[in-house]
Nucleic acid binder design. Structure first.
Lengths: 142, 142
DNA sequence: TTCATTGTATGCTTGATTCGATACAATGGC
DNA sequence: GCCATTGTATCGAATCAAGCATACAATGAA
């Protein structure tokens, strides 16, 4: 009997929404990132085998494989030969430069939108503090 | 002689980058939003006719039409029969609720990304202040 | 009324993306 | 060495998005 049929794991929280517009593999990536960022998936922890997760989420194994592959490229997970896929020990070793570029893009988009909505920068900062409180309270979704 | 061949206008600042990945109509929308948000395009001001702008930017008129249409849906511009397309008088009359939802989405995405990158919330706020300074210095692009 | 000027509608082409099906490769416990 | 279990590779169908070409409709100044 496979481990994944019995053990409780943070991945049981994952839900994919077929008609959400967002690609399935991206939804999966993001939810895994959430779980990692919030510590519910710890470094070293094993993710379910591709086929097992595919069956649980009722999608094609290729879809899971793609999510795992992309996460590996981002160094968020490691694949160990035939053992499985594991959450990386190291933090998120995207190049600092690259990380910063991504954040800057997001910040710029946010500021432009806010300006359009006549929300001042202090207003944005206030909103950030609000949302930070909400997100770190253990809510996975909005 | 058409008005748009002679008058100086903020829209002369617009540049589309064919190989930028971002769709042309979106680039145009965003640059117009910038110009409106920064006051360089004033309420009531007329935008160039679709064909004129298309020629200037060397794209298909349909592409301009699409940008104008989307901006109209967002109530940022108004079309007046055969007169042309004008910057809306009203601010940005998306429902407050809707505006807030959009901002919350952006903020959440930003915070998740930041957390993933081990950037603290104060770090995010600092970055916001940096970028705000840059963006309000009159730079149109990053 | 005419017609120049404005935006609109529709359909096509191209390219990319997503997801699935299926066969393959590699490894390590037994 | 075998083979169960892991991830990999490759191809195909369907869908979608972007941009373009082109014909159309509406209006108002002359």
């Amino acid at each position: 009997m496979a481990q994944w049929e019995t053990t409780e794991s943070a991945v049981t929280r994952i839900r994919l929404n077929q008609k959400d517009g967002a690609p399935l593999y991206l939804q999966l990536m993001n939810q895994l990132k959430y779980l990692m960022a919030s510590g519910r998936l710890q470094p070293g922890e094993e993710l379910p085998p591709i086929r097992v997760l595919a069956e649980r989420l009722v999608v094609n194994p290729s879809t899971i494989a793609r999510a795992y592959r992309e996460l590996e490229i981002e160094r968020l997970v490691e694949k160990r030969s035939t053992h499985g896929t594991f959450v990386s020990d190291v933090g998120s070793p995207l190049a600092e430069i690259e990380q910063r570029r991504i954040l800057i893009d997001r910040v710029d988009a946010l500021l432009v939108e806010a300006k359009q909505f006549r929300v001042s920068t202090p207003g944005v900062i206030e909103l950030i503090q609000e949302r930070d409180a909400v997100l770190t309270e253990g809510n996975l979704v909005k």
